[in-house]
């Protein structure tokens, strides 16, 4: 049992030295367009985050096409200025799951300036033993992220 993905992501943020942060989780793939399409977008100093679209497939059979879409929760589908995390804080380790959903919500609330390209920048490979395969765990993550959202308050 490790300390969980929130702690791992915070450790990585602490260790990173660059001004632009990218994430790549186990089993996910950046496409060859990831840096090529997202990095130039951040040349615009008015932007804090660049996101692309995600293609979902199955780890067991990459030929299975589960569609392409905009998945703002998947951290691997974006590049973020380090200043984003200075502003909104790190990942929330007390969450049982859903630290990525929680972060996406906080980034939205903080008014982080985001640009989106429809280019495919991430391949999300689902397999039955991945951390998210159990729908129950994912649902818990959603409940956790929602409770965290309600504690922050300030709904419009």
């Amino acid at each position: 049992m490790n300390a969980g993905s929130a702690v791992a992501r915070n450790d990585a943020l602490a260790a990173a030295r660059g001004d632009i942060i990218g994430f790549l989780d186990a089993d996910d793939l950046w496409t060859d367009r990831h840096l090529a399409s997202l990095l130039p977008m951040l040349a615009d100093p008015a932007l804090d985050c660049a996101r692309g679209w995600t293609r979902m497939t199955a780890l067991a059979d990459p030929g299975i096409d589960l569609g392409e879409s905009y998945q703002p929760i998947l951290l691997g589908a974006g590049l973020y200025r380090r200043s984003v995390f200075d502003r909104v804080g790190g990942f929330e380790p007390v969450l049982r799951a859903g630290e990525d959903l929680d972060m996406a919500a906080r980034i939205g609330e903080a008014g982080v300036r985001i640009a989106v390209t429809t280019e495919i920048v991430l391949v999300y490979r689902r397999h039955d033993r991945s951390a998210v395969a159990k729908a129950g765990a994912v649902q818990r993550g959603q409940f956790d992220a929602i409770r965290s959202r309600l504690r922050r308050g300030g709904h419009a």
Partner: peptide, 14 residues
């Protein structure tokens, strides 16, 4: 306020 994120969560569509 979290509609986009909850609908986009890829986990729903297994």
């Amino acid at each position: 306020d979290m509609q986009e994120l909850l609908l986009a969560d890829p986990i729903h569509d297994v």
